[in-house]
Design a protein around this nucleic acid. Structure first.
Lengths: 357, 357
DNA sequence: TACAAAATTGCATACGTATGCAAGATATGA
DNA sequence: TCATATCTTGCATACGTATGCAATTTTGTA
C-alpha cells in the first residue's frame, strides 16, 4: 500500500542516465545484432553492472509479441517417464533460450481453465503431454497462431502436430517376442481406453498374435494407474485360466503387476509367468524388476518436439507435422526368451527378429 | 517479416469498441472489485465472448508489477520425491492463481545463468528445491523484494526462508530403531556432503548410536545419486566387516543399495542385512522393496512453502521464516524390528518409542 | 583534403493494460 | 421536488522496452 518505494527494479532509462546515453542505446546493447558501437556498448555494460540491471522480459514481450515461454501441460508426474521428459525439455528449451511454464497437478477433465490460464500468458508454444486437446481449443490456437505439439499421443483429426514412437510396431514386437518364447495364452492390461498409445500398442500386439493364430486375449484395465493395474492383475491372476504371459501397457503399471504376481500369488517370474511392459522407464531397469520393455527414446522425442516448435515459431506458419521416432525392444529378465532374434547392442540385449520390420 | 497481419490477438480496445464502451470499462470488467455497473459489465462480457478476448497477462504484469509467476528451480527430477513435490506445488499455486515457471535439467553448478533468466521474468517468488543459493544472489533477491524459499534444505546463514522436515529427529529415530532391532554394526551411505539434509540426518543418526555407546560407523558416499550409491554399497558390502544395518540417506539410493545387496551379494533382507532409508517415496512403498523409511510429508511441506510466499508477497515485507514440519518413521520389511515402540496408525506401522520426542 | 557511404545515435512512438482524476449518472433522503 | 451522497464512466497517462526514422558521426576512397 505504499506505491512508489524503490523496489530495486532498475530500468533501462536509469542505466541510460547513469551511462550518459539514450535509453535506445541501452536497449540496443542488449539486443543481439543491433547497431551499437563498441564504445557506448562498453559504457552501457559498465553502468548496467554497477546498477544491477537486468532487461525486463515482460516489457520486452509486450513489444516483440514473443514471450519466449513454452507452456507444458502434464497432468500428473507419477509415472517417471514424464519427469524424465520434463527434464529433457527443460534442457533443450533452455538451449534455445525458451522457458517452461508448467501446468500440472490438476484433474484431466479440468483442462479448460488450465488452457485459459496459459493463453493469457501469450505463450509462444504449447506442449501437451498428458491431456488431449478438444478440437475447438485446437482451433483457437490455430487462429491465435500458437503452435501446439501433442507429446506421446495423437488424435484422429489433424488438429495439432504430434510426436510419438512406433507404438504399433512396439506392440507387434512384443507379441512376436512372447510367441517366440513359447507362450500359448496371453493377457493384456490396458492403459487409458481413449489414449492413442493404448490403442496402437494393443492393436500391434493383437495383430502379431493373430498372425500365429491366436485370437483369444484376456483383457484387464489399469488406465495407466498403479492401483487399478494391481486390481486388474489380481482379477486376471485369480481367474480360472491364468495366462502364461501378460503385456502391461506401460512399465509404470508393469512394476505393480509384477509385485502382485510375485508376492500375492507367489508366482516365479518368468518361470510361472512372463511380463512385458512399455516405456523402458527407470524402475524397469532396476534389478528387482528387470522388465523386458519397448523403449521410448525420450531424447529423440523431445528433440523432435522442440524442432517442430522452433520451426513453426520461426516461420509463423503452422502446418501440422507428425513425427514418429523408432523404438527398440530391450530384453531383460521378466519374460522367457525366444530362441532367435536377440542381439547385443551397446551392451544391451535387443530383440530384432528377421523378416519383420 | 510482415508486421501488422491479424494474429488473432484480441485487445481490450477492440472489445471496448465492439461493446460501445471505453477501454477502461473492459479493464474494470476483468478486475475483481473494480467499479463497474452490471449493465456495462454484461455488454463487455458479451463482446469479449464474441471476439474471443482474453486479458493479456504480460501487459497486466507490466503495470501491476506482479507477474503471478513463481520460479521453481529443481535441477533434476530423477528422484521421484521431486516430481511429487512439483505436482503438489502446481496444485497449490494454481489454487492461489499463481503459475509455475520451471527451471530443470541443468547441472547444479550452472545455476547462475538460470538465476539470471528467472530474474528477467520478474517472478513474484522463487522456490529452490535443488540448488543452494549463493549469498550474493540471496542479497540481490532481498533488495529486489523477491521472496525466496529453500525447499528441503537450509543454509547456515539466515539468507532465505526455508521449509524442511525434522531431519535430525528422523536420523535419531532410525538409529534408535536399528539399535532396538538388535543390530550391532552400522553403515551410512551419505548424500551430498554439503547438503543440510545429509548433515542433519547423519548427525541425528550418530547421536542415537552414540547414546548406546556405538561410535564406529562405516561411511560411504552416494551423493544422492543412484550409481554412486551402488558403488558405495559394493565397497561397503565387500569389505571385511560388513555392517548388520545400513542407513541410506534417501530412498532413491536405498532402492539401488537393496538391489546390489540382494542380487550382487545374495544377501537376504532383513535376515542378513537391514536397510533403512529416508523420504518414504513411491518405490519405497512397493512390495519388492518395502523400505522402512522416515516420511517427509510433501503436502505439509508444500503448504508451508506456499504459505510463506503468499504471506511475503501480500505484505511486501520479507522476513525470513523457517518452518520445520514433523515426520514419522514408517515401518516396513527392510529392517529387523525392535521389540517395542511400533504402533499402528491409519493402517500403517509407525515407530514411536517411549521417552524420545 | 574532400566527398560519398556506412555506421551510430537520439527522438518519438507503440505494445496492452490498469488506475487516478474529474465529470456525468444514479440513488438516497427529507 | 431538490440537494446531497454514491456509483459509473471516460480521459489521460504510466509501466519498460524495441524500433523506424532522421540527424549526426565515423569510415572509406580518390
Amino acid at each position: 500500500m505504499d506505491g512508489g518505494v524503490k523496489r530495486g527494479a532498475v530500468t533501462s532509462s536509469q542505466v541510460a542516465e547513469h551511462a550518459g546515453v539514450s535509453q535506445s542505446a541501452v536497449s540496443r546493447t542488449f539486443t543481439p545484432g543491433a547497431s551499437i558501437s563498441p564504445k557506448t556498448r562498453a559504457k552501457v555494460l559498465a553502468a548496467a553492472k554497477a546498477l544491477g540491471y537486468r532487461p525486463n522480459a515482460i516489457a520486452r514481450s509486450l513489444i516483440t509479441n514473443r514471450s519466449r515461454i513454452i507452456a507444458v501441460v502434464m497432468a500428473y508426474l507419477e509415472n517417471l517417464f514424464y519427469p524424465d521428459v520434463l527434464e529433457e525439455l527443460g534442457r533443450r528449451l533452455a538451449a534455445e533460450n525458451y522457458h517452461v511454464l508448467l501446468f500440472t497437478g490438476f484433474k484431466d477433465r479440468d483442462s479448460d481453465p488450465v488452457f485459459d490460464q496459459l493463453m493469457q500468458y501469450r505463450v509462444d508454444g504449447i506442449i501437451l503431454a498428458s491431456t488431449s486437446l478438444s478440437s475447438d481449443l485446437a482451433e483457437e490456437c490455430e487462429t491465435a497462431g500458437i503452435p501446439v505439439v501433442l507429446f506421446n499421443r495423437t488424435t484422429g483429426k489433424d488438429v495439432a502436430s504430434s510426436v510419438t514412437s512406433r507404438n504399433h510396431e512396439g506392440g507387434r514386437l512384443l507379441g512376436e517376442f512372447l510367441v517366440g518364447g513359447g507362450h500359448r495364452t496371453f493377457g493384456y492390461i490396458a492403459g487409458l481406453a481413449n489414449s492413442s498409445t493404448n490403442r496402437d500398442r494393443f492393436a500391434g500386439f493383437r495383430e502379431a498374435l493373430a498372425r500365429h493364430g491366436i485370437d483369444d486375449i484376456q483383457v484387464g484395465t489399469g488406465n495407466y494407474n498403479r492401483q487399478e493395474a494391481e486390481a486388474a492383475a489380481r482379477a486376471m491372476l485369480s481367474g480360472p485360466n491364468r495366462p502364461e504371459a501378460i503385456f502391461v501397457a506401460n512399465d509404470h503399471m508393469a512394476v505393480a503387476v509384477m509385485d502382485v504376481a510375485r508376492y500375492e500369488f507367489g508366482l516365479a517370474i518368468p518361470a510361472d509367468l512372463s511380463i512385458v511392459g512399455y516405456d523402458d522407464v527407470g524402475p524397469a531397469r532396476w534389478t528387482s524388476y528387470g522388465i523386458t520393455s519397448v523403449t521410448q527414446p525420450i531424447s529423440a522425442m523431445v528433440e523432435a518436439t522442440v524442432d517442430i516448435l522452433m520451426d513453426q515459431i520461426a516461420s509463423g506458419e503452422i502446418e501440422t507435422q507428425h513425427r514418429v521416432v523408432p523404438s527398440e525392444l530391450i530384453v531383460r529378465t521378466s519374460a522367457r526368451l525366444p530362441k532367435t532374434g536377440i542381439v547385443e547392442v551397446d551392451g544391451q540385449l535387443v530383440y530384432r527378429p528377421e523378416g519383420l520390420k
